[in-house]
């Protein structure tokens, strides 16, 4: 279970406060969506959960499975099962996707006290998961994300998520910049990962992604706080009325 308690965070460089007291609970087995206008703090929340040190937590705490993760580095959180699917995945020139996946998987397995996979075991695992997402062998040989289209990059994020077997998945605007077909492939991949031991937080601007990844709950984030929580129908309401009620500005 993910528990966020009165979380305040600011940008380390200039002290600007972005998160102003977030309270949120996502039980295992559930998918929650976070929706909100630009600048509401959605991506900041994702980064703070993953442990990015450009942000400073000034108040509150984050618990994952009852344990505070605030003092942990990003790699330790990853070992605890935290995974962030990036809005803008990074390109790593010269490092084959396969090499990267293997380094990452072995790193988390080591930290989780599991033994590293042998080359044949690893290849079998990745090929099977890649096939489900329509990721070709050729793509696995190319340097990670270099020259990939927007859709390919997002598929690669979901592939990494599926290979690393996290228990807390945070998807940061996974639908941004994708056409309808790409959204469908990516969402189907993410939906397959739903399970009783996994909590998911899906961050998005638009309701359409939630047609594919149907959430148990929807939270509206604006001005650094959760303004309203409801069922999946809340997303549809928003589609009509916009965020004006929550930002204090006319749409």
């Amino acid at each position: 279970m993910l528990e966020i308690k009165n979380l305040h965070a600011r940008i380390a460089d200039d002290g600007a406060e972005i998160l102003r007291g977030i309270d949120l609970v996502v039980p295992k087995g559930e998918v929650h969506a976070i929706m909100g206008p630009n600048g509401s703090g959605k991506s900041t929340l994702a980064y703070v959960l993953a442990g990015r040190d450009d942000y400073e937590v000034t108040e509150g705490d984050i618990f994952w499975n009852g344990e505070s993760i605030l003092e942990m580095g990003p790699d330790e959180r990853a070992a605890k099962g935290v995974f962030l699917a990036f809005q803008y995945p990074m390109e790593i020139p010269g490092v084959a996707t396969m090499t990267f996946l293997r380094a990452a998987l072995n790193a988390v397995r080591k930290k989780r006290g599991l033994k590293e996979l042998t080359t044949p075991e690893f290849m079998k695992l990745v090929r099977a998961k890649a096939a489900e997402l329509g990721v070709s062998d050729e793509m696995l040989k190319r340097p990670l994300n270099v020259g990939f289209s927007g859709g390919e990059k997002k598929r690669m994020e979901i592939l990494q998520m599926s290979v690393l077997e996290p228990t807390l998945c945070v998807l940061d605007e996974t639908d941004s910049g994708l056409d309808i077909d790409a959204i469908r492939i990516v969402s189907e991949g993410a939906t397959k990962l739903r399970g009783p031991d996994r909590a998911m937080l899906v961050i998005t601007h638009y309701q359409r992604l939630l047609n594919y990844i149907v959430p148990d709950k929807v939270h509206i984030l604006a001005k650094g706080r959760i303004q309203k929580t409801g069922g999946k129908e809340l997303a549809l309401e928003l589609e009509k009325s916009g965020y004006a009620d929550f930002t204090g500005k006319a749409a």
């Binding site: 790699d75 990853a78 995974f83």
Partner: peptide, 8 residues
């Protein structure tokens, strides 16, 4: 950050 988020 991207690499460390993946566990490295």
């Amino acid at each position: 950050f991207y690499c460390t988020q993946r566990g490295l």
